[in-house]
């Protein structure tokens, strides 16, 4: 019971924090967008069905869209990221497959596994989001630059967040 609360707490807390405090967490003139709700989506259990991932991603995206008045931008990008998640999980699976107890976190799968997965998924999300938001072909090179910069920096930030929260837990 406690494990389940922890698992889904990890998923929903980033969304709540994003909607309440980090909606416009964009730095370096918009070159680094911090989509904290995406961390929640990436912490969905590895055993989640693709359908559940799509539904949760659509829900998360539409909540962020409603809060930021962006109208579908985040929903569309989050759904695409959810579609890519099972494929990325398979790509990075250990030779003997995932254990039932494996969690998509730094403490369970290691920094390298989490960072690569995070980078791949964020790149998918951000390429679609910045591309859609650019809306014109001449702005695409800039959108690609923003997507790659944001993905890289957010991956670093998310790894750091998970490392820090892991340390706090083990200290207790």
């Amino acid at each position: 019971m406690n494990n389940q609360v922890l698992t889904y707490g990890r998923v929903f807390v980033p969304l709540v924090l994003h909607v309440l405090f980090f909606q416009y967490a964009a730095f370096a003139s918009g070159w680094w967008f911090v989509g904290l709700h995406l961390l929640g989506l990436m912490l969905m259990p590895l055993q989640s069905s693709p359908l559940l991932l799509l539904v949760v991603a659509a829900g998360f995206g539409s909540i962020v869209d409603t809060a930021t008045l962006e109208g579908g931008l985040f929903m569309s990008s989050a759904v695409l990221m959810a579609l890519a998640t099972p494929a990325v999980n398979r790509l990075l699976a250990p030779r003997e497959g995932y254990e039932v107890t494996d969690q998509p976190t730094v403490s369970s799968m290691g920094v390298q596994w989490f960072a690569i997965r995070c980078l791949l998924l964020l790149t998918v999300h951000h390429l679609w989001m910045f591309g859609l938001e650019a809306g014109r072909w001449d702005l695409f090179p800039r959108a690609i630059g923003k997507a790659l910069t944001s993905s890289t920096l957010s991956t670093g930030a998310f790894v750091l967040v998970l490392l820090l929260t892991r340390r706090q837990r083990s200290a207790r």
Binding site: L54, A57, A58, G61, S62, D65, E70, G71, G72, L73, M75, S76, V79, L80, L132
Partner: peptide, 9 residues
Amino acid sequence: FQGIALTWF
């Protein structure tokens, strides 16, 4: 879902 999101967008 994409249809809904893009129509909304």
